[in-house]
Design a protein around this nucleic acid. Structure first.
Lengths: 145, 145
DNA sequence: TATTGTTATACTCTATAACTATA
DNA sequence: TATAGTTATAGAGTATAACAATA
């Protein structure tokens, strides 16, 4: 039986194409990062902490579009795994500054290399110029203003 | 407090950007399509049936990367809403051909117009040429071969 | 009064195992 | 033996309401 269905109506929607591409890339990401026991969202949270030591939970939620109650669970798990530590915020007694432990830094050094490799593999059909264009156009869609 | 976090590591990953853009577009899609009581996946299934009358459940699963047990639930719900009908497959006694009812066609005529409008709104910052490029690059990522 | 972080919980979406009817 | 469709269920991911501590 021929699999030649007409999908042109769906394929005209950017949202459909963006979702299918995201699921493809991130599905592979999930497999390749399983050895670190990091989901895509786990990785994104740890990456932001890594490059922004002292960041607060609220800042993470805003930057990554995650909800505070869910962030609490992520951070608790990371702390139990000794990947992050919490320090009192210098000026705001309600807030808590987050940073990676040496163990967390060691993990993220490897994990970020593996993440980049997985991402590159998933988009290997595109040229470097196409990838630069793609990233730019995608960011234009989700960034405010 | 300045919100200027360093996200460059994440933003270098196509998967991260594709996911953020997809969630932005589809979040708006979900709001705009709520009046039809159609989720993004609901819409994609009905759209394929609309443009491919007689399609089988298995073909839908392959085309949209959905799992058969979940498709059963979608189709049951559509049938209860009198949006689709099932007909015996002409040659394969195991399979069932799917098509829209007149009621389903009427709904999808409106829903497809609203979907296109929502999608266009969500990517209004991009030019027509950029959108054509974006669709082409995204399809290259998720299409096999 | 508003905000940060938290708890508990509900809801949606997706995935797995096993079954039936037909090819 | 393999495939189309189905059932039941489990799991992951995400969302809502309400609260304590601090600004």
């Amino acid at each position: 039986m021929s699999d030649s269905l007409d999908l042109t109506a769906l394929e005209s929607l950017v949202g459909y194409n963006a979702r299918r591409a995201a699921l493809t890339i991130i599905g592979r990401f999930t497999e390749n990062m399983a050895r670190f026991e990091l989901s895509p969202v786990d990785f994104s949270v740890l990456s932001v902490i890594h490059h922004n030591p002292g960041v607060t939970s609220r800042q993470l939620c805003l930057a990554l579009n995650l909800l505070p109650p869910n962030m609490v669970v992520f951070l608790r798990t990371f702390e139990k795994r000794h990947l992050i530590k919490r320090s009192p915020h210098p000026t705001d007694g309600r807030a808590i500054g987050l940073s990676l432990t040496p163990e967390g830094m060691a993990l993220m050094k490897e994990a970020e290399a593996a993440a980049a490799a997985s991402d590159n593999d998933a988009v290997a059909k595109l040229t470097k110029a196409e990838l630069a264009t793609l990233r730019r156009l995608l960011m234009k869609i989700y960034q405010p203003k």
